[in-house]
Design a protein around this nucleic acid. Structure first.
Length: 326
DNA sequence: AGTTATTTCCGGATTACCTCA
DNA sequence: GCTGAGGTAATCCGGAAATAA
């Protein structure tokens, strides 16, 4: 998709801005994004392709929209969603499947009650293998959060939160819960988002298992993340258009002034305007209108009163305009 | 082959909760 | 302690696409 901004009088030279946006974004805001109508089409293709398989309704390993809102931290392509190493873990602390025997990988689930697995999990087919082990097998180092709280303190803190949530739930099962993901969970989701901005069901379930979240939560996070990305990009585009508008306004002002000068010249020096019409050509390099009768104007007027822009155009050689000059 | 119902996912808008100044 | 703003998880709704009947 090429968005063309027509400025009214010259639709032949559409003003494209989106191809410039990434440059601006890279420089000023530290992220890039390629927008294109190919997105929806490509997505449809993805879906088609994915639905060829039984349980892969969608795949997004190569998203059509490239976008990075964070400092680029490349994750090797060879790492699948199941093989991510969390940057905050030491080398021997890789998240493992929740049901694995090593006991690692039981990330703290900020939303899951310590004991009860919800019906939704079962529906999603992503119920964890040991939902009641969330507390006992909590091994991730969350010391970085909450101002360097010790592991023990943090665990107690989280237990407290979990139990308070449990009591909330007991009081009213329909209470809407809104609980923050941990820094680590968010970081992991971000990393994953950088890899692919959409998830197929397998990836979603895998991520959910790794982070000890419900698949629905992962799905919602990705949806919200895409929305944030889009909003951010819209702001960038808006800012760019604003700057363009300012530039064009300034250009318009300048041209109006020039027009006024020309009109004044016409009234003060009528002979000037009786000369043969000046051939105007468009400069292929800068796309400015160039006049080819500089010498005539100059000699006829007797002094060099041509407006600044007309003077600035004469750097273009126009060999076939000698008639006008004579 | 065309139609309809169902399912699934998504985006957009909005709500509700949480944190922080 | 109260309050308003901002961030964000969660919800609702409608549309699109695929699939099955």
């Amino acid at each position: 998709m090429e968005l063309a901004l027509s400025l009214g009088h010259d639709a032949s030279t559409p003003f494209t801005f989106l191809d410039k946006t990434p440059k601006i974004a890279n420089k000023d805001l530290g992220f890039r994004m390629a927008l294109g109508s190919s997105f929806s089409a490509a997505r449809s293709e993805e879906i088609k392709e994915a639905r060829g398989g039984q349980d892969n309704r969608r795949t997004s390993s190569d998203p059509p929209v490239q976008l990075d809102l964070l400092p680029l931290v490349p994750v090797p392509r060879t790492q699948t969603a199941l093989q991510f190493r969390l940057p905050w873990l030491t080398d021997n602390m890789v998240l493992s499947e929740p049901g694995s025997s090593d006991g690692l990988g039981k990330g703290l689930d900020v939303n899951r009650l310590p004991v009860v697995a919800t019906a939704e999990e079962t529906e999603d087919g992503a119920a964890l293998s040991s939902p009641n082990s969330t507390v006992s097998s909590f091994h991730m180092d969350f010391g970085a959060r909450n101002g360097g709280r010790s592991k023990r303190d943090h665990l107690e803190f989280e237990l407290e939160r979990a139990s308070s949530r449990a009591s909330d739930d007991d009081e009213n099962g329909s209470t809407r819960k809104k609980l923050r993901l941990s820094k680590e969970q968010s970081a992991f989701l971000e990393e994953s988002f950088k890899e692919h901005s959409t998830l197929n069901p397998k990836q979603k379930v895998a991520l959910a298992k790794q982070l000890n979240l419900r698949p629905r939560q992962v799905e919602v996070w990705f949806q919200n993340r895409r929305a944030r990305t889009k909003l951010k990009q819209t702001e960038v585009d808006c800012e760019y258009l604003k700057r363009c508008c300012e530039t064009l306004t300034e250009e318009n002002r300048r041209l109006q002034k020039e027009l006024q000068e020309l009109r004044a010249l016409k009234t003060s020096q009528p002979f000037y305007m009786q000369l043969p019409a000046t051939t105007l050509t468009m400069c292929p390099s800068c796309e400015r209108v160039a006049t080819t009768s500089n010498s005539v104007v100059s000699s006829a007027s007797g002094n060099n009163t041509r407006p600044r822009t007309m003077q600035s155009f004469h750097h273009h050689a126009q060999p076939n305009n000698k008639a006008a000059a004579s």
